[in-house]
Design a protein around this nucleic acid. Sequence first.
DNA 1: GTTACTGCAAACGTTTTGCACCCCG
DNA 2: CGGGGTGCAAAACGTTTGCAGTAAC
Lengths: 143, 143
Amino acid sequence: MKSLPTLPIPIDILEQYVIKNTHPRRVVLRVLLVATQPLTVEDIYQKTIKDGLNEVTVYRTLNTFVEKGIVRQLFLDDRSAYFEYENKQKHHHHLVCTNCRKVVDFAYCPLPSLKKNVSTTLSTIQKHTLEIFGICKPCSRVA
Amino acid sequence: MKSLPTLPIPIDILEQYVIKNTHPRRVVLRVLLVATQPLTVEDIYQKTIKDGLNEVTVYRTLNTFVEKGIVRQLFLDDRSAYFEYENKQKHHHHLVCTNCRKVVDFAYCPLPSLKKNVSTTLSTIQKHTLEIFGICKPCSRVA
DNA sequence: GTTACTGCAAACGTTTTGCACCCCG
DNA sequence: CGGGGTGCAAAACGTTTGCAGTAAC
């Protein structure tokens, strides 16, 4: 039987990245830590209303986290941004069902084999995206 | 001396995709055909004002083109969408300079080697993104 | 005690919508 | 001539900003 991985503790993360340990930051971080897929600001805000958070504070908190490298911001063919806790241990990309919006992590990354080719144009690589969109198995059975 | 590739003619494309041949559509298509990199709606609108186009019409025209598969819509870590003429002959991805916003096409595509792996989750692949962001050589020399 | 964070209201840039008119096929 | 396309104004949406009050260190 596989043991569950221990989740990091919000306060420890805030301390580690040397940013003030405030209520909104602990709450947003907790939401992201337990999330099983990337969340929009609206998703996160809805889960934090009961803790008294303001939507603008969620935006500002997420921007701070992204700047500090605690959280990764993604764009999934939407008008809205998605956020996920940046787990440096397992870099990954995403498979997205365009029907039910379910997002599944995808371990393969092509970047290492591209670096040489890219370097003729870009002298520094900052980030990259690889997302694959389609219809997931459950959704294709229904349709 | 390399001969320039012949550009498709807007009217022919509109006919081929069976949509009404109107002034705004010909103008927007012409702009996309001669573009050397993906353009935002604002970019396109600016180039079509002199032809009397309305910004809303540019939006609607582009949405129609995307639905018909004439044009590809991309998201480049921005709040705004980018559009490029869908040249089915040469599928490609993008290298984006985060400093000067220059976008360069990138021929390599990892999808073929991923298909098998993806298929355990997605029964149909509709589209995919691969964009690499960094600092281009000219920009890195200045900084 | 300072500095940085938060909440509120208001502004912002991008995109969509409702409706009357117009033009392509 | 009918149905789809267009222009205009206005709304909707996601996100950012200014400012006064508050909390963390």
